[in-house]
Nucleic acid binder design. Structure first.
Length: 260
DNA sequence: ATTGAGACCTGTCGGC
DNA sequence: TGCCGACAGGTCTCAA
């Protein structure tokens, strides 16, 4: 999409989580994508003159990119039941947004709206950036009464972690999801060793996930705790069993014997 | 100001 | 096979 122009935009189902802005398709058509970026779990296309197209996949969303072959007759695309938006680009690419649960959304924001966006503007650091480390994590959690689990799911603390990788990172770091987030720092705000461990494992678990997605032959173990209730803990020499409980409405999986 | 619960919507899976 | 409830990797809103 980068550098390409929207030649045709179809909204087949306008009622996603957030209603589309007025004249969405019309405003997008003719715009060129200056840059395509990701921030937290948001995708953003910076447009040549209409601001930013902000997109989110929700729980079940995905994009499909097709190139109806140059030269061949352009066949009408068989539209799936949950194909809600279709972008036809000037370079021939057809980008389709599919989302069965319709928790995803698309929005068009002016630079001013983007800067004032209640979520986008308050996002914490990108976990893989240098701005995120044990120090910044401890600082963000200083004095927090919530659990570590809830704190890591809070996008203002660190951006882009979901339920699975929060649970995985806590297991790797040997920290109980139920501990208060404040334990990562001393009363005076100094990071404890656990903060550095946790920040390191967050980066590690994400890097491995990305690698696994990119390289199918990289068969590193799937999840170590997520969705493994009653199965043995995989930490060497632990011997515990994975337990499950609900925290903040989400499933938490953990090993009570090695996560303290 | 924080925090947990409920809501949003559809699909899938296991049990009966 | 069919029905039913539980559950799903995200985020918002509301009430306490």
């Amino acid at each position: 999409m980068t550098g390409a122009r929207f030649t045709h935009v179809t909204v087949r189902r306008p009622d996603l989580r957030i209603p589309f802005p007025r004249r969405f398709a019309a405003r997008l058509t003719g715009e060129t994508v200056v840059a395509l970026i990701r921030r937290a779990k948001y995708l953003a296309a910076e447009l040549s003159s209409q601001g930013t197209l902000l997109m989110h996949l929700g729980m079940s969303g995905s994009f499909r990119v097709e190139r109806p072959g140059a030269g061949k007759t352009r066949k009408p695309r068989a539209e799936g039941k949950h194909d809600h938006v279709v972008f036809e680009m000037s370079n021939g690419a057809v980008v389709t947004f599919t989302d069965p649960r319709r928790f995803g959304f698309m929005d068009l924001l002016t630079p001013k709206q983007l800067a004032a966006h209640p979520v986008f503007s308050t996002l914490g650091p990108e976990p893989l950036s240098d701005a995120f480390d044990g120090d910044s994590l401890a600082l963000a959690c200083q004095g927090k009464k919530t659990s570590l689990k809830a704190a890591l799911l809070d996008q203002r603390v660190v951006a882009g972690l979901g339920n699975i990788y929060v649970v995985e990172a806590l297991h790797r770091a040997g920290l109980s999801p139920m501990r208060p987030a404040s334990i990562l720092a001393t009363a005076s705000g100094k990071p404890r060793p656990s903060a550095h461990r946790l920040a390191k494992e967050i980066k590690q678990v994400l890097l491995e996930a990305i690698e696994r997605k990119r390289n199918p032959s990289y068969r590193a173990n799937r999840f170590r705790v997520y969705d493994r209730e009653d199965e043995p803990c995989l930490r060497r020499g632990c011997g515990g069993r994975i337990q499950r409980r609900t925290q903040a409405g989400r499933s938490t999986f953990y090993c009570a014997s090695c996560q303290r």
